[in-house]
């Protein structure tokens, strides 16, 4: 429930992108009233939609432990994403997870005046921009959306080529990494970095075996959610003395954004901070990894 991206990742396997034809509303009073039922949709809505068209956001959005927009989200009544919530709130449109829940919602609410829109799950930055553009158009905020998109694109462009092509390994405490075909991989490449996991042949969201760490250590670690695991990180991988010693030796930066699991426009915030962190590392990573690719 908390790490929404995990569920999302599972569900996205069944994702069916709903073909989109975008009616653009003239003025804000005609904007469709929208409810979002998951963190990723909340992020999108709170960034792009007009405040008066948001009826409700998910409870996760208000949880400062997992959401970076918790404060803004507190302005709206929360929902837990049930069909009953949607029946009661009577929105014109509901942004839901893809997959089974979304399909169930669509079935149950068919003919009740609520349009169910499944959130797309982007795997590249280009995808992210495209999906945001489509969603913005859907909720009648194409212009606001376009402005945010142009801004994000410009910021992302600036970041390119600012750092050395380090070999980077993205790791979560469970040993999870991001191989090719994930937005993490795409982002790393956009920044001019090399994704160790993808180069080692991993695709999708797999695990990076400890043994590979020993045989092929990266120049730099990018750590996701290590802050969240607390003192006795539940995952043995994150606690393993071998990894701990490597983290002392090899520089690491952590993903500075709590909700980096959606692959939305907020990726650019994450990217900026990652680049800034790398630039301000006391010791710049060595490119030893390059010696034996």
């Amino acid at each position: 429930m908390k790490r929404s991206f995990i569920i999302l990742r599972v569900l996205c396997a069944f994702a069916v992108l709903i073909p989109i034809s975008a009616p653009v509303a003239a003025d804000s009073t005609d904007l469709p009233k929208v409810v979002s039922t998951n963190l990723c949709a909340d992020l999108l809505l709170l960034r792009i939609a007009a405040p008066e068209q948001i009826l409700s956001v998910s409870t996760q959005a208000q949880d400062p432990r997992v959401s970076s927009v918790a404060e803004a989200a507190l302005a709206y009544p929360p929902n837990r994403g049930g069909v009953e919530d949607l029946l009661y709130l009577k929105p014109d449109m509901a942004l839901v997870y893809t997959g089974w829940t979304g399909r169930r919602h669509a079935e149950l609410l068919a003919g009740r005046g609520t349009e169910i829109v499944a959130m797309p799950y982007p795997t590249t930055w280009t995808d992210t921009l495209k999906a945001t553009r489509e969603m913005a158009a859907r909720i009648g905020c194409a212009e606001a959306g376009e402005a945010r998109i142009l801004d994000a694109e410009a910021r992302m462009r600036v970041l390119r080529e600012r750092i050395q092509p380090y070999r980077v390994l993205y790791l979560r405490p469970s040993g999870g990494t991001a191989g090719s075909g994930t937005y993490v991989d795409d982002l790393l490449r956009l920044l001019g970095l090399r994704n160790v996991a993808a180069e080692a042949g991993f695709a999708g969201w797999g695990r990076f075996p400890l043994e590979r760490l020993v045989t092929a250590p990266p120049d730099l670690f990018l750590l996701g959610y290590f802050d969240r695991s607390g003192p006795g990180a539940a995952s043995a991988y994150g606690r393993h003395p071998l990894l701990r010693r490597m983290l002392e030796r090899i520089p690491s930066v952590s993903v500075p954004v709590k909700d980096w699991g959606c692959g939305g426009l907020e990726l650019v915030d994450a990217a900026e901070r990652i680049v800034a962190q790398i630039e301000s590392l006391p010791v710049q990573p060595s490119l030893i990894g390059q010696a034996h690719p």
Partner: peptide, 14 residues
């Protein structure tokens, strides 16, 4: 779910 540092689905599975 209630923990100060919420664990994920993977932790539960473990």
């Amino acid at each position: 779910n209630l923990a100060p540092n919420p664990g994920g689905v993977q932790d539960m599975v473990l």
